[in-house]
């Protein structure tokens, strides 16, 4: 059974609680900067030895070949109140103190309920033998390994690298050439978003027309 030994980074921004509060790790995907190079996908696979058939992050193209074509890198968004956690029958999914949603592969039964619950399609299942064909769930770990002891061989084998414990950011965000994918503490990410929005000025918000049709 997994042993919990998690390294939680602290906030570096000057928030109300200063550096004593645990960070709330978040991704931000800037659709205006993504050039669909696929670097994040390759870097993730390479860093975490992701098995074939699994894409912990994938670049989705919306309105391909039409005006307004947009590329969105979609990893697990590590929701604060994650629907996958609420439906998981065996509590294999859980929020760490820093907001990262972990999966415990040693208790996951591979039911696939999280796959339907997740609005982003983050949970992935390898195709294997006919019996138990789904395998256990695999998803973006935010490069924070798993609930095993940090840097252990088991953690490396089941989940991949643990860059968060090393004090680094996820590999996908680190290699993003245009910085379309921003990762880090929510306060820092919010600062980046605010800065970019201010620099660009006002305009339509991408996706708002779909979410809120004018008629």
């Amino acid at each position: 059974m997994a042993t919990t030994n998690i390294t939680i980074p602290n906030r570096s921004a000057s928030g109300p609680e200063g550096k004593h509060a645990p960070a709330r790790m978040k991704f931000y995907v800037d659709t205006k900067r993504c050039i669909e190079c696929g670097g994040c996908e390759i870097a993730c696979k390479n860093e975490n030895n992701v098995p074939p058939g699994i894409a912990r992050i994938r670049v989705v193209t919306v309105n391909e070949g039409q005006p307004g074509e947009t590329n969105v890198a979609v990893p697990c968004m590590h929701c604060s109140n994650a629907p996958c956690i609420s439906v998981c029958p065996v509590d294999a999914l859980f929020n760490r103190a820093d907001g990262i949603v972990h999966v415990n592969k040693e208790t996951c039964i591979g039911c696939g309920y999280c796959l339907y619950a997740c609005p982003f399609g983050a949970p992935q299942f390898p195709q294997g033998s006919p019996f138990g064909k789904r395998g256990v769930m695999d998803k973006c770990t935010y490069c924070a390994g798993g609930p095993e002891e940090a840097f252990s061989a088991v953690e490396q084998q089941l989940y991949g690298s643990n860059r968060i414990a090393e004090g680094k950011l996820p590999m996908c965000a680190s290699v993003c050439s245009t910085k379309a994918l921003v990762a880090g503490d929510a306060e820092e990410v919010a600062n980046v978003v605010r800065y970019r929005a201010a620099a660009r000025g006002s305009g339509n918000i991408w996706g708002a027309g779909t979410a809120y049709p004018s008629n």
Partner: peptide, 15 residues
């Protein structure tokens, strides 16, 4: 389609 991230947190066009 979601009313939450990423749809509503996107950078406006024109930037």
């Amino acid at each position: 389609p979601l009313t939450v991230i990423p749809q509503l947190n996107q950078i406006p066009f024109g930037g």
